[in-house]
Amino acid sequence: MSAPARPAAPPVRVRPERGRWRATLRLLLSSPPSLFAVLVLLAVVVVALFDEQIAPTGFNEVDVSDRLQPPGAGHWFGTDDLGRDVLSRVVLGAKVSLQVGTVAVGFSLVVGVLAGLLAGFYGRWIDAVLMRLMDVLFAFPAILLAIAVIAVLGPGTTNAMIAIGITYTPVFARVTRAAVLGVREQVFVRASRSVGASDARLLLRHVLPNALPPIIVQTSVSLAFAVLAEAALSFVGLGTQPPAPSWGRMLSEGRGYIDLAWWIAVFPGLAIVVLVLAFNLLGDGLRDVLDPQQRSALEAARHRPGRRRRAEVRR
């Protein structure tokens, strides 16, 4: 256009199928909340991967003479009731929290979505059997069910993840089934069937993508719950075993000292908040970018800042 400094328009995509993922990613990162979320998650992953190198001290270096120190130069996040460095424990707890979140939710996502898809799409006895099974799981209070699962499998972080995964499976099954029931009746599903598409193709290419938005939202909500559930399980001694740190454990342990030493609970709590917030923002961003209609609106909006900048120059 008129501004010579503007970079040339990107070349027309010859094979749009290939460039779409990259374009989607670029669009996702162009929205500030999503960018923030991605950066935070990357940071947490890096911290979790290199926790030993990053943490100033080991996770269990007790120094009773240095106990309950407020945040300061020596200990940025202070020390806990045993004189352990809270910063180090937060860093070392990242791995557990991240793992519990992703593995547990990943499990319930895969199993629950599959069950919901089949139940919603086929109906009849498949629906009855699968959903009654889910109802049985759902009837137990979440923590009680997780405790029961751990009672069978034995305590430990891995088993806690499985237990949490099982606990949240019915939620995904129900959310997916509800969405599938709506999509199943759409004309475009019948249209695909009328040209000979198989059930598997209908489910994966048409029903699942259109049922995705509530599933994405449920995923980001569940990630948050999973991190907290791990805390609860650890609190009753069934999750991460002491003295190994996890954010949830530190939060519940620090609760008793909240009047005396707020930093013991607040910093792991903050870490949970930031992680959960990042998951939620990413979920929202993904949902928008994956919806073609929203996407067109986003792409149109992206050109607006440029126009504003030119207007300012003129002024």
């Binding site: 749009p16 199928e17 759409q186 004309v187 475009f188 019948r190 249209a191 695909s192 009328s194 040209v195 290419r205 048409h206 993508p209 259109n210 994956l290 919806d291 073609p292 209609q293």
Partner: peptide, 18 residues
């Protein structure tokens, strides 16, 4: 094959025309 009544409902909104 069949051509459907409602052109707004008979195309998958999440699939490209191609």
């Amino acid at each position: 094959v069949m051509v459907f009544q409602d052109p707004y409902a008979s195309l998958d909104p999440r699939a490209t025309v191609g």
